[in-house]
Computed example of a mutant assay.
Amino acid sequence: MSNLTTAVTEFVLLGFSDTRELQILYSLLFFLIYSAGLMGNLLIVIITTFDRRLHTPMYFFLRNLSIVDACFISTTVPQASVNSLVNNRAISVTGCAAQVFLVMFLAHFEFTLLTVMAHDRYVAICHPLHYPVIMSPRVCMQMTLSCLFTGLLNAGFHTGYTFQLSFCQSNVIHQFFCDIPSLLKISCSETFGNMLSLLVSALVVGVGCFAFITASYIRILSTVLKFPMKEDQRKAFSTCVPHIIVVSLFLISGCYVYLQPPSSSGSIKDIIFSVFYSVIPPFLNPIIYSLRNKQIQDAIRILMRRKLLLGNKA
């Protein structure tokens, strides 16, 4: 950190536009996306917590996913929105390091949790009789804690490794938030080890989880096709297909951003791909996984009726 602190005291984040009118427009757009994503995820957390009918493994993982998504979208979007609104894109070295750590941790947590959710759907559809035993509350908690602790280790390692580098060429980060690929591009140190560690993490975590998810859904689809009722097939497909879409979007955009050579110059395309893995999934997950779910919809109606009744009595 010695070279970093003597050469660079703060970083400057790159926005979507230098035009003032567009900066305000992007700020308002990000604020609307953030508000919708945050309210949707918090609504799912509240519903799945207080409705005892939803205290099942599936909704336990959905609740944790919503908590992660609410934190993930809060890590990047509010500051980007405020930066565009006040036209001040500076961020301290400590703030940048904290943002890098949180983005890495929450991205890891979310992707591994999506992998666990694929396993949960596989057991529920392919082994329904053994589902309560295989996905017991203790097993669900152990899986979630494994996602959390491996995320902390992964994020801690990459953040510490990145901020040992020297940043003496430029302090302009070609991104709307601090991330490792953008920092490697402006470092004047040797970054081969950093790129190699990112590649290994991508292969172990990204490709490994994606392979597990793919294998789970191949088994699920082969089982679903044997269902005699078309309605049962439709329900199973409607549950699985959105999961595959979100996972693919998350993985493809994340790999594009994190596995580029550090010598590449920053571009608006990099920022757009970052939006696809850091903003869009947390925004869409409540709609795809929960708000389209009949049980969630029924729970929301019951909660609204109770609020109305309490309001009328008051």
Rank of each mutant, 00 (worst) to 15 (best):
M143S: 07
L29K: 06
Q260C: 05
L14P: 03
S222V: 02
V93C: 10
D270L: 13
Q23S: 00
L153V: 09
C255F: 12
P228I: 08
S216V: 07
I244R: 09
L303A: 11
G95E: 05
L65D: 14
S265F: 06
S263V: 11
V246W: 05
S146I: 15
C240H: 11
S197P: 12
A80P: 08
L145F: 02
P286M: 10
I91P: 03
Y122W: 14
I44G: 04
Q23I: 09
S263Y: 04
Y289F: 04
V8M: 15
C140R: 08
E10K: 07
H174K: 11
T48W: 09
S253T: 15
C255Y: 13
M1K: 15
S189C: 08
R89L: 07
I271V: 08
Y26P: 02
N285V: 11
F167Q: 00
H55N: 01
T115K: 10
F61M: 07
G40I: 14
F149Y: 12
I280C: 12
T159F: 13
R121K: 14
F109E: 09
A211L: 14
L32M: 13
C188Q: 14
K313F: 09
I244N: 13
N293V: 03
S146T: 15
F273W: 10
L183P: 13
Y34R: 11
I218P: 07
L308V: 08
S2G: 08
F283V: 05
S201Y: 02
H174Q: 12
Y277E: 04
I288H: 13
I252H: 13
I134D: 06
F276D: 05
K226P: 09
I125M: 03
V93I: 13
S170Q: 11
S238W: 09
N293G: 01
L184N: 14
A299L: 01
K185N: 15
V200R: 09
H174G: 06
